[in-house]
Design a protein around this nucleic acid. Structure first.
Lengths: 327, 327
DNA sequence: TTTTCTTAGGTAACCGGTTACACAACCAGT
DNA sequence: ACTGGTTGTGTAACCGGTTACCTAAGAAAA
């Protein structure tokens, strides 16, 4: 590797000390106009770029944040990651990507690595981390999409309200028997969405617990769940899936079973991922402001890092129903 | 921020010098069994984790690689990113994610940032970088999906061959008039795929240049292109789209125009992104080994970084046709 | 004129590791 | 006994920045 120009080279060129160069660089302390000119010119000439690593070592901060997600291949996360990276870059930070598969050991491992690299803060979207684990880190954390514990800055969406909206919408569309494909038990947002559904239908004479089936937020489990559901309850004419991927699974299953969408059966999802616009029929869904989520989280994290005031450390963002052709 | 334990603390605890601790840490140089034991115990007790930043500064390497992609939201890249991150983590590296939108300034900016952070190597998927720009970096680079110039390690797939396979497959399926929605002009893989198509159909009596229409690898442009195409040439009964996203656009367009797929018109894509399995009908496509691509690139990059021997610096990975229901 | 404040800029310690070098102890070979 | 190689360990320089501290000059205040 070719040696990079260091602050010493610049200092020598400009005929000043390294301290002066550093002062120019950071716009801090007293520097005469003439010295500043000379330094700036030398920086130009040598194409000098300060070494961030050396800077990090002294300042104990690295202008880097960690982004911990279960799996970037899950269609919810690319948009989130993009938002985080966009805002981070704007504010002068880089982002290190970590996929944990919701695996406790991997999570702890990445936490250690990020800490060793002096990252300034971390954005997590995970439900296996404990509050204790997080407090031990002593650096700012923002939790996205899942509430870990009070006191930890969190950004979520109105899961329950969205679920109610979705379910009511199906009712308004004259669906008589509405089922729900829920997400994994114990995952906060899956639980909340299920609760929202229940609140709307539990009073209905036709409602039965077996209208709620389990999925794991993925397509395969949803196809199987829907197959079973429609065989057991052929009367079902509306399905609210706890996320878009499962809604697409439901569409495929219904299609296989010869049901027409939306004529025979209406299907609504949750998330508003890009995929929901790519299907035929296009999916009606509760769209989350995913980009906004990432944006807000990053802005907040950087504020926390830079000790700027933050108004709130808990945001619940609004969701909105987008009607397309599956209902 | 709470002060972290440093090597000095460990040395003091163990009653040895920092040099000895460092030797234990790196398994380098002579250390007596008794000293090693004491040091290891102190490390345990204090839960000491070496500061990677300090290490980076001295070693001029950071155990970090950069991953530069146009846009992680483009469905091709999450799987690639996942592969890169998986392998990198396995080999002890972290990955910094950069989205450039194929924008020259952003690319140069990220290159600068990555260099300042002493990343050990970079994986790029981009076509605006010049060979010169890359050589100036003086660190290992691997180019994915796009060939920048000879001499720069590259991993691509058999674009032309895949395109030929796709086109021939449509012919074998009794399509009489096959059109092509190509990717942006000047983008290597788009050009190669178009060439592959041409080689198969240019000898056909029915072939005309206007059967090739332009898209930008995105859905919107493809929908518009297909609309125009099918209006102008209603006789078309087969479409080879240069990527899956555009194939899906073509499906949607055909659907809107009342054509049945695959009865009236067969559609085949290229890439094999997750989305291609989510549509109704599921997309027949030329699948690229995306994960394999990322894996190979990362393995090679780390070999280059660690100066281990690499057999080849140019790989052209095989693609395979996966028949589903759109043909 | 002396004191004090502001401006300017250099020297060197420091961040937390790694490693060249020095030195000592011990063993083997002559 | 002398030489030389191997082993074990500490001291201090170094990586490339930042900044506390010091000195000094000129301006303003006493």
């Amino acid at each position: 590797m070719k040696k990079l120009v260091s602050i010493k080279d610049v200092a020598k060129q400009a005929g000043v000390s390294v301290a002066t160069v550093s002062r120019v660089l950071n716009n801090k302390g007293y520097v005469s106009e003439s010295a500043r000119k000379k330094v700036e010119q030398s920086i130009q000439e040598l194409n000098y770029k300060p070494n961030e690593v050396a800077r990090s070592l002294f300042k104990k901060q690295s202008k880097t944040i960690g982004l911990i997600v279960p799996d970037i291949m899950n269609p919810f996360f690319p948009e989130l990651a993009r938002a985080v990276e966009d805002i981070a870059a704007e504010l002068g930070y880089s982002v290190i990507l970590c996929n944990t598969d919701e695996n406790k050991e991997k999570e702890q491992h990445y936490l250690d690595v990020l800490l060793q690299k002096y990252v300034d803060g971390i954005i997590v979207s995970s439900n296996t981390l404990s509050a204790e684990q997080i407090h031990k880190l002593h650096i700012p954390i923002v939790s996205i999409d899942r509430e870990i514990s009070q006191g930890i800055p969190t950004i979520v969406v109105e899961n329950k309200k969205g679920a109610q909206t979705a379910t009511r919408f199906l009712k308004d569309k004259e669906c008589k028997k509405i089922a729900h494909i829920r997400g994994p038990l114990g995952v906060t947002n899956a639980d909340e969405r299920c609760e929202g559904y229940k609140e709307v239908v539990s009073g209905e004479p036709w409602f039965r617990e077996s209208y709620i089936v389990n999925g794991y937020f993925d397509m395969q489990s949803s196809i199987e769940a829907t197959n079973k559901l429609l065989r057991l309850h052929p009367e079902i004419d509306g399905i609210f899936a706890a996320n878009d991927t499962m809604a697409i699974g439901a569409i495929k299953s219904a299609h296989q079973l010869g049901r027409k969408i939306p004529e025979d059966i209406a299907i609504i999802g949750f998330d508003g991922i890009a995929l929901s616009k790519a299907t035929v029929p296009e999916l009606t869904t509760i769209v989350q402001p995913i980009y906004e989520l990432g944006k807000k989280a990053t802005t907040m994290l950087v504020h926390l890092i830079e000790k700027k005031p933050v108004e709130k450390t808990f945001y619940e963002l609004e969701v909105r129903l987008v009607e397309r052709h599956s209902t």
